[in-house]
Amino acid sequence: MLDKHADYIAAYGSKNDDYEYTLSEYLRMSGIYWGLTVMDLMGQLPRMNQQEIIDFITACQHECGGISASIGHDPHLLYTLSAIQILCLYDSTDAIDVDKVVEYIKGLQQEDGSFAGDKWGEIDTRFSFCAAAALALLGRMDAINVDKAVEFVLSCMNFDGGFGCRPGSESHAGQIYCCTGFLSLTGQLHQVNADLLGWWLCERQLLSGGLNGRPEKLPDVCYSWWVLASLKIIGKIHWIDKAKLRTFILACQDEETGGFADRPGDMVDPFHTLFGVAGLSLLGDKQIKPVNPVLCMPEDIMQRLNLKPELLNFFLPMLTLVLLHHRNLEIIFSHA
């Protein structure tokens, strides 16, 4: 089945439907990252056109240092991270001006520690993750004010242990992945209330075995990844029913065309294909390379970069909820 998935991704890149291509061009760089990462996880990266992709990335770097989704589009932190992830897969960060990219990211940090997505100033904890992940991959975390950045992310923590996009916003599995990932990269996972957050994350598992991103939403392969990766980061992956989740993810494959969909029976796409395969890897599938839960990249790349994002260890005697002291709740609340 893995070969079929690889064929699906390889064919997707060469398909050239004008209309479809235009509709999604605004996120092209991330699309390429999804495709290449899933290929690498399946050991099929050499099938992709390395030089063409690297040249494309070089052409997408702007004067300001930021990188855009495609040529002629405006630079943005989201695509800057995707581009750096791709270059790390290919061990080719020298294809861009790294100093400039670091300056660009640094320039997007605000006084309160948060990050804007681009020069127009939208604030979101997703962008805090993008900044930290990009700088960690480049080994330049010292360029930003990490303490302030951490302070802002923690100010988005809610009483249920989860995180939202900004202070006061609802907890959301995608944002939780970004925030726990960010705290891992900055070595601040002890600031997470792992028991409370783990509780919330486990409640995302539905009878089908799939996970949703918020209460009463449908299960989805991509949310399954975000919840599962967050659980892995905070050392609570054993709190869900792994076998059932595996069954759900496998049911989302299209056995004829290859690729994964969000839910069984829906149309497949590269995005859900990556998160399906990455999810199976986190669940221990031996046919797939081990994936790093924080950066969603193969572990062998992390080793080459000598990057070890912090993970909470579930063998340590964890503070149980029963012992949870009121003081901790107050701390949570003051960030809520």
Binding site: T22, L23, E25, Y26, L27, G72, H73, D74, H76, W120
Partner: peptide
Amino acid sequence: LNPDFTTAWNVRK
């Protein structure tokens, strides 16, 4: 037709 085309919003900004 395609409201997530960031660059088009930026042109309007």
